[in-house]
Design a protein around this nucleic acid. Structure first.
Lengths: 318, 318
DNA sequence: TCGCCTTATGGGTAAATGCTCATACATCGA
DNA sequence: TCGATGTATGAGCATTTACCCATAAGGCGA
């Protein structure tokens, strides 16, 4: 029995209510009458539509101050693509601010007709970007992960961005079937000698465009919070000048990859600095400023999506 | 640097306020505090951002497209009630797609406490609607058929919708005890002179709400397939510009009833065009597009339940 | 089957929002 | 200079929305 959606699901109702509210400009009373439900239920549906990201809001105007910051960043770091989203005020999660802009930037590439290989890192920023994306049918592209998808506890999907994007664009996708960080260099190498892994690695290295988050290596490092490195390993790398990481690979304040600590056991593909293909960093937040700065200096990334306060901080420290 | 401390334009402020409101989820009070303005000004900026399209809202859900189509149909044809169900893909029976939506629409009326007279046509679409209906005890309403229930072979129930609905709502029901199409105008008139028939006709003409299918008059006409008209009669009416039919009454491409062919011998009640009471067409399918278009033009129906591809076709031909 | 636990529902209410209006300010023309 | 005209502002108020809570409904294990 193929009956895809015979009964209007909760999502359908929520989407409809949200549409009537935000697009149709109706009050919740009117929506309740229209759908034959109570006002409270209408309110819950509308709020659910927003919470689940069924309703997407974007700013269709470049605020002058942000444009100025973009131009300044472009000048100062020789960037190809820069987007600065308005800040949301202290205390707000900067991912909320940059997600729509990041999604728009990714969609730009996905809408190109010629087939592209898009390489992706992980992290909360990329996760937010994907959530803010619309569904877009682009089966001509290939999506490849830069970073292993096997977490320390063996679970397969952490912030598995590639899978989620692939859902939305219906494009072939290639997760990196290795541990994010292996216990020993030998085990890491063993994984990377496997032919299927070599294929994915080759694909990632040949990517036409790269989207990555940027992690700080201060005490609030995502690598530590997510259990990929121990406190001792973090200490060691901090002492050696670790400033940030991209796709799990740690670099110093000049953006030079370190040859120690977990860098000897990190799986997947390191984003090569200084290449011509677009390499877009998606990152915002005061604690990430030194890391972003370093990645920009060595051109691990040559494009940036960030928010207003982060942009200001980058310029004042540069 | 390009514009040292340029005064932020009104648009900039509006965009920023709208951003903080819709993306940041702040209250207008908080925005006012953040930007150092009065709450009223914040409110005006937010509302301006929306009015000028600085803030774009879109729905990231499959039914989003359907809602857009509904709005377009409502605009284009001045309809009161429109539902567009998501298409089920080529090859699938469109009745399957629209039946749940049609049932929901009918249930809306049946749930009303005040007694209604509901007039019904026949056809596969209405049959599907009834099958998709839940049982609902509404003895306050009366259900009346628009169309005769005597088939050419003398059998009484073909797609007899009224009986089946009545089963589900346990409401009094009034079949139209005349032939769908009589052999001669005289026989038809003889039936309609009978007092019981006149009562049913009067009831149908006073209906508070009408649900009908819409039949095409191309070579795959339901009237022909079900043996109500002969091939010769169909030819004659096609030559005269027949475009579709509602409850057995044939009309041209502008929705004007023809005065020839079987229209002179059709029993039951013709749905009068342009009345205020809801008259909901339940119809989908590529071959029905010209018929639906005609019925919409002359407002034989002022409401529509259809599916996505049909909705698109209606709009592109309109 | 019963009773417990989780989840959904609708009433009530405080907070937030949108609207109207009187007023202030500025611009422009006589 | 004065007045007229148009526009922006904030106060007050009606409407709308969000949240809390008591209760009902549904699911699940004993």
């Amino acid at each position: 029995m193929s009956r895809p959606d015979a009964e209007p699901s909760l999502h359908d109702d929520a989407a409809r209510a949200g549409w009537l509210y935000y697009v149709g400009g109706m009050t919740q009373d009117q929506i309740a009458a229209e759908l034959g439900i109570s006002r409270q239920r209408a309110q819950r549906l509308v709020s659910r539509a927003m919470a689940e990201g069924l309703i997407q809001v974007r700013l269709n105007h470049r605020i002058g101050a942000c444009l100025d910051l973009e131009a300044a960043l472009r000048d100062r770091f020789g960037l190809d693509r820069v987007r600065v989203a308005p800040g949301l005020g202290a205390g707000a999660d900067p991912v909320r601010a940059i997600a729509p802009a990041a999604a728009a930037e990714l969609e730009r590439f996905l809408r190109m007709p010629e087939p592209l290989v898009v390489a992706l890192g992980t992290g909360r920023a990329l996760r937010g970007m994907v959530d803010a994306m619309v569904e877009i049918d682009s089966p001509q592209h290939r999506l490849v992960s830069l970073i292993g998808n096997i977490a320390p506890d063996g679970s397969a999907s952490f912030f598995d961005v590639v899978m989620r994007i692939a859902d939305k664009v219906r494009a072939p996708h290639y997760p990196m079937p290795v541990p994010v960080i292996s216990p020993t260099p030998e085990e890491n190498e063993a994984f990377h000698r496997l032919p299927p892994v070599r294929k994915v690695v080759a694909l990632a290295e040949a990517a036409d465009v790269v989207f990555v988050g940027v992690g700080q290596m201060s005490n609030d490092a995502p690598l530590l919070a997510d259990g990929f490195v121990t406190r001792a390993e973090l200490d060691e790398m901090q002492t050696a000048g670790a400033s940030g990481e991209v796709a799990g690979w740690v670099f110093d304040s000049e953006g030079r990859y370190l040859d120690l600590g977990t860098n000897r056991r990190t799986g997947g593909v390191r984003v090569a600095p200084g290449l011509a293909r677009p390499s877009i960093g998606i990152a915002a937040g005061a604690s990430k400023v030194p890391a972003i700065l370093a990645a920009l200096k060595s051109r691990i990334i040559n494009g940036l999506v960030t928010d207003e306060p982060t942009a200001r901080a980058l310029l004042s420290r540069a």
